[in-house]
């Protein structure tokens, strides 16, 4: 474990907590893409298949449970919670994400570290996470003004993988045989997809103005 990866995991945890706060405090999920939440639930379920087979550390196991549990709880809340579900932007959140799921799974069948059930699903989860934010970014552009908590949620979600890139550089420089091309390339693509969001987020922060994404 290094400081970059810890910062990344903590930033990811913060993004989850901010989202839970927004939904719990405002009893609303307006501006949040259910599609992105469902993709993230798939990402964690596919990636943490080794939850019970490979024990890395208590920290690793606890964080996996937190990410799986929170993503499923948010999907449940947005679909079935009496009050929250009413504020879901159903007509704006129309990204046909099964295309992404199919493409990522096909890619995982071709490109993986080892051709085993667990490793193919692991690679699938890495590719899927890289594009999982797309429905959310599309929804932000369509829904115009973005409330603060939603903007902070997306910001932290994007920042966490940027910390992981620093972690991979650090491990590449300090560990003799460290090569994680699948994670690195996907992580770069994932972070790049946030580039324009980060730009508009920075502008809104500098001008102390509401976050506005161009339609």
């Amino acid at each position: 474990m290094n400081i970059f990866r810890l910062a990344g995991d903590m930033t990811h945890l913060i993004s989850v907590l901010v989202l839970l706060l927004k939904i719990y405090a405002t009893k609303s999920c307006s501006g949040i893409s259910l599609k992105t939440q469902e993709l993230y639930a798939m990402v964690f379920l596919a990636r943490y298949l080794d939850l019970f087979s490979d024990f890395i550390s208590l920290y690793n196991t606890v964080m996996k449970l937190v990410f799986i549990g929170s993503s499923l709880a948010i999907v449940w809340c947005m679909r079935y919670h009496r009050v929250v579900r009413r504020s879901y932007d159903r007509e704006l959140d129309t990204f046909r994400y099964w295309i992404l799921v199919g493409a990522c799974f096909t890619l995982a069948l071709v490109l993986h570290e080892k051709f085993s059930f667990q490793e193919v699903f692991w690679a699938f989860s890495i590719y899927l996470e890289a594009v999982a934010i797309l429905p959310q970014l599309v929804l932000l552009q369509r829904s115009g003004n973005v409330d603060n908590l939603t903007g902070q949620y997306v910001f932290f979600l994007g920042a966490y993988r940027a910390f992981y890139i620093l972690n991979w550089i650090y491990r590449y420089l300090t560990e003799p045989r460290f090569t994680r091309w699948i994670s690195c390339v996907s992580g770069l693509v994932q972070t790049a997809l946030y580039a324009d969001f980060f730009y508009y987020y920075f502008i809104s922060w500098k001008n102390n103005a509401k976050l506005q994404l161009p339609a």
């Binding site: 990636r47 045989r177 994680r180």
Partner: peptide, 10 residues
Amino acid sequence: SKDDEAHDEL
């Protein structure tokens, strides 16, 4: 070794 295969990152 085993730890090489197990993914130690989240």
